[in-house]
Write a protein that binds this DNA or RNA. Structure first.
Lengths: 240, 240
DNA sequence: CGTCATTTTGATTTACTTCAATGATCGTGG
DNA sequence: CCACGATCATTGAAGTAAATCAAAATGACG
């Protein structure tokens, strides 16, 4: 069922992502229980697949470094991008119900992930009370953030969506202790457009506008945010 | 914390919704464990609130009869409708993470709900293994269906969204053992439009068109589906 | 350095909204 | 039970945000 996977990296107890990852809110003593079941897979290269639609579901994956794009194909065989996942994020939650992955996940950068064997997490509940609680909180949060994202796609203008995306990325980087006003973003305009339900042309025009305003820039994969406040106000604004 | 609530109706063991509700996949013997903690609240009248944004989260609610509208207010203080919930559906899952309800839920019809005290569900895990499993499967499904709905809002045309809505309602009624080609739908065009991210005018025009085509009608709260096949093909069609 | 993918920029189109006005339905109280 | 005001639905005309189409400019990379 869940084949043994080699451990390639440090334990949860030593992980820098404790604050944001799955195991946050667990006690220190619990990590020793969690570690033996968590497999740290060898790095994925850009373009490598973490899981694919139709794969049997055995593991949840915690992103440890790099970035993962999660997407489905619609009936026109076009990608529909569900999200971009950063270190500390858990992916694969939507596959539990059916026992089969419904989305595709690929690395956008050199990426490492921890594999959490789902069956063994259940067993671990006996030894680590609160593990399932944490799991349920995580899923509740995922339900909510899905709703919020859907609301953004439908209620905000193209410009607000773009601004919101960069603010949200920035705040995620900050939560993870990285530089949040200047960071590398290794995704294509095409993918960002897809995620925000826009065209690449529209994204380009909007970025040009933000650049002219001196609010932010995104050139050569490198994002620089100059006027966080302005972007914020713009996203919150009631009138487009 | 979780005040005692009076029981107004039958037990889970006798409930007709076992197949679709939370407790599906539990064993018969487990219902006796579940029953004492589940409170069957007195009926809500049309317009009554089941929970509101900002309420402390203590219970999940299983709709037992009637219909519940779940919505939030955006920054313009307009409703953003998250969904319409039928008997067997569980609402409130998105509030677990924060411990506070983030949406509003109101009855659209005379409605009865079962209140599931969340804290006690956790305790019950010891006696009813598989309860948390079922909970997690339910939440996984909710994550997925949220994604699917978001995809529909962004990828489908207005006409496809309307057709899809009625097909989806029809299939839900069928899954619950009700008549699925003719049913009462006590919601406003305005609310349907809101849910599908359209205007009431657009919904009206589209319903007129479907009526002229002889595919379906919705008059005086009563839905009749005449050409399920045509509606299906239309929703699936790659070209709008 | 040349090729191919990506991004940018401009002109045009379109699906849906907004605005406006009329007609149907609901509910309430006499 | 009917009348009347309010809410809701329909229909048409005009407007608009973003898509699409087309083409040039820039960048990535063997």
């Amino acid at each position: 069922m869940t084949r043994q996977m080699p451990n390639h990296s440090a334990s949860c107890a030593q992980c820098a992502l404790q604050g944001v990852c799955f195991a946050s809110s667990l006690y220190e003593s619990d990590f020793s229980q969690l570690d033996p079941v968590v497999a740290h897979l060898p790095s994925f290269m850009k373009g490598d697949s973490v899981f694919s639609q139709g794969d049997n579901f055995h593991h949840l994956y915690a992103v440890r470094a790099g970035m993962v794009k999660v997407y489905a194909f619609n009936e026109r065989c076009q990608e529909m991008i569900q999200g971009f996942y950063l270190p500390g994020d858990i992916i694969g939650l939507e596959a539990i119900a059916s026992g089969e992955h419904v989305f595709n996940a690929v690395a956008l950068d050199t990426t490492t992930v921890c594999a959490l064997p789902y069956a063994q997490l259940g067993d671990l509940q006996k030894k680590v009370p609160g593990l399932m609680d944490q799991m349920i909180r995580l899923m509740s949060q995922e339900i909510l953030s899905g709703r919020v994202h859907a609301g953004m796609l439908t209620q905000k203008t193209a410009e607000q969506r773009v601004a919101q995306f960069f603010l949200s990325m920035s705040s995620k980087y900050r939560a993870r202790g990285y530089e949040h006003l200047q960071f590398r973003l290794n995704i294509l305009h095409r993918d960002l457009a897809n995620y925000l339900n826009l065209t690449p042309e529209t994204v380009s025009r909007i970025l040009g506008k933000f650049h002219r305003y001196g609010w932010m820039s995104w050139k050569k994969r490198e994002v620089r945010i100059h006027e966080m406040e302005q972007l914020c106000d713009f996203v919150e604004a009631e009138t487009a």
